[in-house]
C-alpha cells in the first residue's frame, strides 16, 4: 500500500542540517488516521497518543538523517514535548506491480458507502471475491462462494452512487479475500473509491480519505488475481 498526503517538507536549516528528511504537521491525527488505513499495527500507533480531547492537537516534527539513523519523532502537545527515536531496519524491496494507467481496461469510481454495504453482506467464509466488470450487464458484480451459499452483489452503472463507469471489456477476476481484507480499514474511512483493473487483472483500489482538517488523501491498494482457480469451479 502507498499513501500520499501533504506534509510540510522543510528545506534544511541550520539546526536540522544533519537530516535528509524533515516533515512537520500541526495535527498528528492526520498521520495516524492514514497509517491506520494502511494496516499499521495498532499498538505502534499509540506513540501518537490516544487522546481524543477536543481542541487539543498534537503537532509532529519528523526527521530522518539517512541510512542507519533512527527516525526522530518530536511530538508537542500543550507545551509538552515528547522526543522519540525509533530504530530503523533494513528495507525490504517494495513490490512493484507495474500498474500503469495506460494499461487500465476497466475503471469504476463510486461512493464508498455503497461498497461498505456490500462488504457487510458478502460471505467471508468464501476464500475468494470475484469481481466482474463489464460494459454490459451485470456491469459491476461482486461475488462470494461460501459454505452457506453463493452471493452476488450487482451495481447498476447508472446508480447515483456510481460517479464514473468506464469499462471497455468484460473481465472476471478472483482475488483472495484474505488479501483484500486489510484494505477494509481504508474503505471504512474513505468517502470514494476508484477501482481499476489492468489487462492482467491486477486490481488497484484507490481510497479517497478526508482527514480531520479536510485534507484529501489517497490510499492505494494493489492486488494480483488468484491464478489457482479452475474455470468452471464457480458459477
Amino acid at each position: 500500500m502507498t499513501y500520499t498526503m501533504p506534509l510540510h517538507i522543510q528545506d534544511t536549516d541550520d539546526d536540522d542540517s544533519n537530516y535528509i528528511l524533515i516533515a512537520k504537521i500541526d495535527n498528528v491525527k492526520n498521520v495516524s488516521q492514514l497509517l491506520k488505513a494502511v494496516h499499521f499495527k495498532e499498538e505502534c500507533l499509540n506513540i501518537f497518543g490516544a487522546s481524543t480531547v477536543s481542541g487539543i492537537t498534537t503537532a509532529l516534527h519528523l526527521c530522518y538523517a539517512g541510512y542507519g539513523s533512527p527516525l526522530v519523532l518530536i511530538l508537542e502537545e500543550g507545551g509538552v514535548l515528547t522526543d522519540c527515536r525509533i530504530k530503523t531496519q533494513e528495507t525490504e524491496e517494495v513490490l512493484d506491480f507495474q500498474f500503469s494507467p495506460e494499461n487500465v481496461v476497466n475503471k469504476v469510481i463510486m461512493k464508498s458507502e455503497i461498497l461498505r454495504e456490500a462488504w457487510s453482506d458478502l460471505d467471508m467464509t468464501s476464500e475468494i471475491l470475484q469481481i466482474v466488470m463489464s460494459p454490459d450487464k451485470p456491469y459491476f458484480r461482486l461475488s462470494t462462494f461460501g459454505n452457506a451459499g453463493t452471493i452476488h452483489v450487482d451495481y447498476s452503472k447508472d446508480s447515483d452512487m456510481v460517479e464514473s463507469f468506464q469499462c471497455t471489456q468484460t473481465q472476471s477476476n478472483r482475488y483472495k479475500i484474505s488479501l483484500l481484507k486489510p484494505s477494509l480499514k481504508a474503505l471504512i474511512q474513505s468517502l470514494k473509491i476508484s477501482i481499476r483493473t489492468d489487462e492482467q487483472g491486477i486490481i488497484c483500489l484507490q481510497y479517497m480519505i478526508k482527514t480531520e482538517d479536510e485534507h484529501v488523501c489517497f490510499v492505494e491498494y494493489y492486488c494480483v488475481p488468484d491464478e489457482e482457480v479452475e474455470v468452471g469451479e464457480y458459477e
Binding site: 455503497i114 453482506d121 452457506a148 451459499g149 453463493t150 452483489v153 450487482d154 451495481y155 446508480s159 456510481v162
Partner: peptide, 20 residues
C-alpha cells in the same frame, strides 16, 4: 437445488443469494 433470494435495493443495487 437452490432457493434464490433477490433483494432489489436503492441506488440500483441488487443482491442475489443462492441458498442451497
Amino acid at each position: 437445488d437452490k432457493l434464490i433470494v433477490q433483494l432489489h435495493q436503492k441506488h440500483g443495487m441488487v443482491k442475489t443469494f443462492y441458498i442451497p
